[in-house]
Simulated assay, not measured.
Amino acid sequence: MLRRTLMGCLTLAAAGLATIAGPAAHADLKAPYARAAAIVDADGSLNESKNVVKAWRASTGRYCVQLSHYIDARSSLIQLTPRHALRLPHIAYRHPSLTCEEDNTITVNVYSTHTGRLADSGFDLLVS
């Protein structure tokens, strides 16, 4: 299980490097060991994804990621990786919250490491 998770993380990191190398808007993310994956930009737009319906920015530093209906967000292992070195994303809720009222959503809050307050930043999300 750990091996699959690590392979999924490496695949997601490689996909992030490929994204930096050239523009790829709304392409399918190749993550064979992940149940779902997403690269979310700072404005909340979905750069690349696998089994993710949509993503959006709810407010400053608050993001919502809605998974496909056959992947249960409540019982999944979720890993977040910041796209900016001075930001720290964390999972606030795994199901509908006051921020993200859609079904099967993950609410992600991103904080600045300098101020400790919510701040906009992109992140990578991996669901295994």
Rank of each mutant, 00 (worst) to 15 (best):
Leu29Tyr: 04
Ala58Trp: 00
Ala25Glu: 13
Ala21His: 12
Gln79Lys: 10
Asn47Arg: 15
Arg94Cys: 02
Arg94Ala: 06
Val53Trp: 04
Arg117Phe: 07
Pro23Cys: 11
Gly16Arg: 15
Lys54Cys: 04
Tyr111Met: 07
Lys50Asp: 03
Val108Met: 05
Val40Arg: 08
Ala14Lys: 14
Asp41Leu: 14
Ala18Leu: 14
Arg62Tyr: 01
Ile71Ser: 01
Arg117Ala: 11
Thr11Trp: 15
Ser76Ala: 15
Thr5Asn: 12
Val127Pro: 13
Thr60His: 00
Gly116Cys: 05
Cys100His: 07
Glu48His: 12
Val53Tyr: 02
Ser68Asp: 09
Gly44Ala: 01
Leu2Glu: 15
Gln66Asp: 01
Val53Arg: 09
Tyr70Ala: 05
Ala25Pro: 03
Pro82Lys: 04
Cys64Gly: 08
Thr60Leu: 03
Pro89Asp: 00
Ser128Met: 13
Thr60Glu: 06
Asp28Cys: 02
Gly61Met: 01
Thr107Pro: 00
Thr11Pro: 01
Ile71Pro: 02
Ser76Phe: 00
Ile78Val: 15
Ser75Tyr: 08
Thr11Phe: 11
Pro23Asn: 08
Leu17Met: 12
Leu77Cys: 00
Val65Gln: 10
Leu125Gly: 10
Asp120Gln: 08
His114Val: 09
Pro96Cys: 01
Ala85Ile: 13
Arg94Asn: 02
Lys54Gln: 08
Leu80Phe: 03
Ala42Asn: 09
Ile71Val: 11
Leu46Lys: 05
Val65Cys: 07
Ala85Pro: 04
Arg57Asp: 01
Gly122Ala: 12
Ala58Thr: 04
Gly16His: 13
Ala24Glu: 13
Glu48Thr: 14
Cys9Ile: 14
Gln79Val: 07
Asp41Pro: 01
His95Gly: 06
Ser112Tyr: 07
Ala31Lys: 08
Asp103Val: 12
Leu88Ser: 12
Ala21Asp: 09
Arg87Tyr: 05
Thr113Tyr: 02
Tyr111Ala: 09
Ala14Trp: 13
Gln79His: 10
Val127Asp: 11
Ala15Pro: 07
Arg94Met: 02
Pro32Met: 07
Arg83Glu: 11
Asn109Ser: 02
Gly122Cys: 12
Asp124Phe: 13
Asp43Tyr: 05
Arg3Lys: 15
Lys50Val: 00
Glu102Val: 00
Ser49Phe: 04
His90Gln: 05
Lys54His: 05
Cys64Trp: 03
Thr99Trp: 09
Arg62Glu: 10
Ile71Leu: 06
Leu77Arg: 13
Arg117Cys: 01
Arg87Gly: 00
Ala92Thr: 04
Arg74Asn: 06
Arg3Asn: 12
Leu98Pro: 00
Pro32Phe: 10
Thr60Lys: 05
Ile71Thr: 04
Ala37Trp: 10
Asp103Leu: 10
Tyr33Asp: 13
Ile91Pro: 03
Thr107Asn: 05
Cys100Glu: 08
His114Ser: 11
Lys50Arg: 14
Arg3Gly: 02
Tyr63Arg: 02
Pro23Ile: 08
Thr113Phe: 05
Ala37Arg: 09
